[in-house]
Write a protein that binds this DNA or RNA. Structure first.
Lengths: 250, 250
DNA sequence: GCCTTCGGGAATGTATACATTCACTGTATA
DNA sequence: TATACAGTGAATGTATACATTCCCGAAGGC
């Protein structure tokens, strides 16, 4: 998939490894051996090592006790906690934005995104929903909203949590197949979007924070039902292959 | 400083670099050049590179746009946000612990730590406070309290935030010189410690969360006053050398 | 005089040889 | 039979040579 890029080998190795991890080619707990990977990827040990280091920063790998790396494994509990954590961080960003006041210009731009989100399912017919468009705009909305607090530190940690594919704000959108339940989810989510912006405008910090948390819990509920229902289909939701069944493997 | 350990060179380079960063030898924004560092540390490029990568994971370095690393620089705003973030995360851990119920055994152990904390300043005379003992026990308390929520994901992010020296729960203790104000801080902090544990025991999640946040704000206030008052003394608080004065340098 | 291009140097990127460490296994001895 | 020691292999750790890229300055042409 666009593998023969002219970019450097570290990036290629990083990309290839990330793909394998997310799509389940390297299950959680798998120990990654430099030499084996090098031969497999046809890339020398140095860039492979560098790639693993970056993926550890990203949170997909963890450093093994005796040196080396292994694929991080996530239980369902870990995943729900990560989503809860995203809600907490987005809530904090929203609260801070409300407390210190957001720039009108930025708020207007966010309002425009909300209008475009409305358009993605304005017809009211389930089959006509533009899921891809909604997903993209939804990601934009969450990014812009978080930026309102003007805090690089908060932003950074939020980006870190969102980098786990199942914890990103748009994960639940792609996971939703075309049914009435997912339609209702989108309607509720959009109402919460507008409520969050309104709360920030009115300097209602506690309300903004509470809504952001509850908003994330839509994703949590959606993931839990997806995990139970469509357990067999590996591509039901991005990154679902990362989730292990049992308690906590090596 | 215990430099000639028999451990591997990566760890030695990591330690040495971290020390230099924390103590101001490498100010925020400094670009780190592999060759120069290698020659300076008398260690080849490979372990130096590895060390920088780990310090980037730790949050003390950041990857520069065109490759390489530079020392991360923190404004006062960044620091207060990091402390606020710690309060938010500790508050979340406390709330989750309260909601799901904590193990009595773990709570008893935390109670024992609290008793020992009391002993550090039981005499009521300012000069007799055992600051080092308090600092150590305080760190233990915060770690154990966070563990009550049984969430590796939350723990991991909390450890990440606490790894910034000025954001650790004990930073403000060492920063406090022997004056009446710091004595009052410790008294208030200890009252909050007991209140947090009580709230968790009683399943009062919202209260536990609120107290944890307010608790962190003691550290924030203490840092702000330290930064203004003792600006000249570099060792007024661990990691204070990391904080830059102006807006946001390269 | 200004713009463009070519060259050189310094930085990171890459490959690979060699070092070290640690665990596993097999054998020998008590 | 059990334990201890030594050998062997595979893994990461380390050093270093070489490649590549990019910036910057100087020189030459327009």
């Amino acid at each position: 998939m666009a593998e023969s890029k002219s970019v450097n080998l570290t990036k290629r190795a990083t990309y290839e490894l990330r793909q394998r991890i997310i799509h389940g080619g390297l299950p959680g707990g798998t120990r990654l051996y430099e030499v084996a990977l090098s031969e497999d990827l046809q890339i020398s040990r140095t860039p492979v090592r560098e790639a693993m280091s970056r993926l550890a920063e990203e949170g997909l790998l963890e450093r093994a006790p005796g040196g080396g790396f292994q694929v991080r494994s996530f239980t369902l509990r870990d995943v729900t906690d990560a989503i809860e954590l995203r809600g907490v961080l987005e809530g904090t960003a929203a609260r801070l934005a409300a407390e210190q006041g957001a720039e009108p210009r930025a708020l207007a731009e966010i309002g425009a995104i909300l209008d475009r989100l409305d358009a993605c399912f304005a017809t009211g017919t389930v089959g006509a929903i533009d899921f891809d468009g909604y997903s993209e705009l939804n990601a934009q909305f969450h990014t812009r909203l978080a930026e309102l607090c003007q805090s690089p530190v908060i932003l950074r940690e939020l980006e870190r949590v969102k980098s786990l594919p199942f914890a990103s704000p748009s994960a639940f959108v792609l996971g939703s197949n075309e049914n009435a339940r997912s339609f209702h989810s989108l309607v509720v989510a959009q109402v919460q979007h507008r409520a969050m912006v309104q709360a920030i405008e009115r300097r209602e910090g506690a309300r903004a924070e509470a809504i952001a948390r509850e908003h994330a819990r839509i994703a949590r509920a959606n993931l839990e039902s997806t995990f139970v229902t469509d357990a067999q289909t590996p591509e039901a939701m991005p990154g679902i292959a990362l989730i292990v069944r049992e308690g906590r493997p090596g």
